[in-house]
Design a binder for these strands. Structure first.
Lengths: 259, 259
DNA sequence: ACCTGAACACCGTTCAAGT
DNA sequence: ACCTGAACACCGTTCAAGT
């Protein structure tokens, strides 16, 4: 601590890493609030600066630009999703139900954090990706590995427990990808319907995810098959055990998962 | 035609619809070239105006703004895709191969028109959608109906010919959507790998589409099943019959579909 | 009736001046 | 060593003046 001639306590000349992290987080938080309130298209650096107690120059010390800030938000979102995925993967049920649970947790995340979900989608565009710092991009890749790791683990268990036999023409990576792209496609295309119960179409996101999962897994001959097990009840139980708090928040918002 | 006092041929005071359409198209074409050359993130209205023989004011008579222009490009892209879809749907093979062909045509489109493909994805963001004219948005919805119509038709045929029995818990709309979201998810997530043969991962887009289609359709018990038919050869034949020109262009670019 | 481009507003980014 | 905000550049959009 440095005390100057008139006894005023000055801020330390070299900022410790912890307070730097805290400051960075406060900027990210401010940006998220702006996105929640007025959409990602209306996020401006001026608005962010107005919301935090630091100047423009300081904000630009943390982020190389607006896109870098978006990617930082995106990374935070992926970290939240990775937590949900791993909680689902560690559930004590059979592998097939765990995968169903994991995919449903993707929807839970999209409903609970619509602004974060949209930011991640948006950050996939070359626009954002191309203007971000290499560090932030590397961080994103690591976080995505963590996501895929959870999916990979469940497939491993399914194969080890002999409930699933790998098709001769596919490896585990391809299975992980098939599973991921199906959920991604469904939630992306129905993202406008995600938050409300009834949208402009008759499609209900959770129903489509549930059905498509069952179709794909039946196609893989992943035991137990839909005809041999009440996956609906098994999933309901798993959801209540693993994500009770999340379901409660959904309920308070009047959004009950109906698959 | 109006001739003024010094005999100079003046442009007619009231422009006919045809030349208006042509002018609009020339603006769209200029924008597409800019996107192809420097990416959608570097498209500016100034660059568009510089490329066409009209002024800013005239460009803004055709499009309410930059986003409206993007949606116009997006609509043109969907029209091209709809043409491919319908050609696939009308092929004279069994329904399951036709659907496989249709989904593969989505990939062909993404490879042939990467700029258009990215523009469509980009236009799905609220940013673009929110700032476009209602007419253009309505046009998009109609074009998407046309896309879904092709998919719907193939499912109808499959059911009529009794090769596919609708699962009790799903209707045709849900099947169409399942099929669509799977292709969409795969191509979107692998969009960086779409143009090149080998990307950073070991995933090959066409292989994943081929496998995922077979898994989903086997899950539906859609005849003939993968084990009873050489879908690979059937698809190869269908591709050569329906999309010979497109395959040739791909080949010239060194991009051979390998599923 | 139609077209033009100067002018304006807004926003991302930088950097000289300050503590 | 760190912070600040005025200043700059760029870009989307408008509209008064022109033909």
């Amino acid at each position: 601590m440095i005390i100057n001639s008139i006894g005023k306590c000055m801020t330390p000349r070299i900022l410790d890493e912890k307070s730097l992290k805290a400051r960075e987080q406060s900027i990210i938080d401010a940006a998220i609030i702006i996105i929640e309130q007025s959409g990602i298209e209306n996020l401006t650096m001026d608005k962010v600066v107005a919301k935090v107690s630091y100047s423009k120059g300081t904000v630009y010390k943390h982020f190389t630009g607006k896109e870098d800030l978006l990617l930082a938000i995106s990374n935070q979102a992926i970290a939240i999703l990775a937590d949900l995925f791993w909680r689902a993967a560690k559930f004590s049920g059979c592998a097939r139900i765990r995968m169903l649970l994991l995919n449903m947790s993707y929807l839970i995340y999209a409903i609970l954090h619509p602004a974060l979900f949209k930011t991640v989608i948006c950050s996939k565009s070359p626009n954002v990706y191309g203007k971000s710092s290499p560090e932030r991009i590397q961080e994103q890749e690591q976080l995505e590995m963590k996501l895929l790791g959870a999916i990979h683990g469940v497939f491993d268990d399914a194969i080890t427990s002999e409930k699933l036999v790998l098709p001769s023409y596919m490896d585990i990576q391809q299975l992980c990808f098939a599973n991921w792209s199906m959920s991604y496609g469904t939630i992306s295309l129905l993202s406008e319907e995600v938050e409300q119960c009834s949208g402009r179409t008759s499609l209900v996101v959770e129903k489509e995810i549930f059905n498509q999962n069952n179709l794909l897994f039946d196609g893989l001959n992943w035991q137990p098959l839909t005809k041999d097990n009440n996956h609906r009840i098994a999933l309901e139980n798993a959801l209540m055990q693993v994500f009770p708090d999340e379901l409660l928040i959904l309920k308070e918002r009047g959004r009950i998962l109906d698959f």
